[in-house]
């Protein structure tokens, strides 16, 4: 391929902002930590809910605070050559997993199950949407958990492959192959769907 196009405009990305804020947090600046909280609270909340869908709202709030407060200590271990956002996402996942484990151990000891069923996400029927969308939703729900995780991190959170590998602690090639498989399944599904107007059900 010809590579003679001029360089892209210098990217002013958020990671530079993060690096600055992290440096300030390392220096003990509470407002910088507040800024990080304002920037990433939603992402951390989502990471928590994705990891533990049955968590109650109160637990979730505590856990999110806990994640950010733990940064006061953890930022000193953070290598500033790395990108902050995926690192934080990984911290959130680990904290949630710890929380879930402790919760289940306690539940076992108390011989009662955690009663969070009221927090189960409700799936309202998707009315007024394209048929395609319904079929895709079904397809997405039936993807293996590993593929779905990668797809969500890639599509919704916009993480790069290397970052996803870091978050999920898997090989980079595993990331690409999972994404590849998910994509193949879904594109095939759409393709089959498109054939139907021709009057055929191929039953693939």
């Amino acid at each position: 391929m010809i590579k003679q196009i001029s360089k892209p405009p210098l990217a002013i990305d958020d990671s530079a902002v993060d690096a600055t804020l992290v440096k300030r947090v390392q220096g003990g600046d509470v407002r910088a930590l507040g800024d990080l909280y304002a920037r990433y609270s939603v992402m951390v909340q989502k990471a928590v809910v994705r990891t533990m869908p049955r968590i109650s709202d109160a637990d979730r709030e505590d856990l999110v605070h806990d994640v950010f407060l733990s940064l006061l200590k953890l930022v000193n271990k953070f290598d500033r050559a790395r990108v902050f956002r995926p690192w934080l996402y990984g911290v959130a996942i680990k904290k949630t997993q710890n929380f879930r484990r402790k919760r289940s151990v306690r539940a076992l000891l108390l011989r009662q199950r955690a009663t969070n069923s009221e927090d189960n996400p409700v799936h309202p029927p998707a009315d007024g949407q394209l048929e395609n969308a319904e079929i895709m939703e079904k397809g997405l729900s039936s993807l293996p958990a590993g593929q779905k995780d990668v797809l969500i991190l890639h599509a919704v959170e916009g993480f790069k492959g290397e970052e996803i590998a870091e978050i999920l602690e898997i090989e980079i090639n595993t990331v690409w192959s999972r994404l590849h498989r998910a994509r193949k399944t879904m594109l095939q599904l759409l393709e089959n769907e498109r054939e139907e107007p021709g009057g055929h059900e191929n039953g693939v």
Binding site: Y37, V42, V49, D57, P124, E137, V156, R183
Partner: peptide
């Protein structure tokens, strides 16, 4: 693929996004 990503995002939003709020 963009359509798939949109559906993935809206599905995620339904399950997850609806339960979180910016501070």
């Amino acid at each position: 693929w963009q359509q798939i990503l949109t559906v993935a995002a809206s599905l995620d939003n339904k399950d997850v996004g609806a339960r979180v709020a910016p501070p």
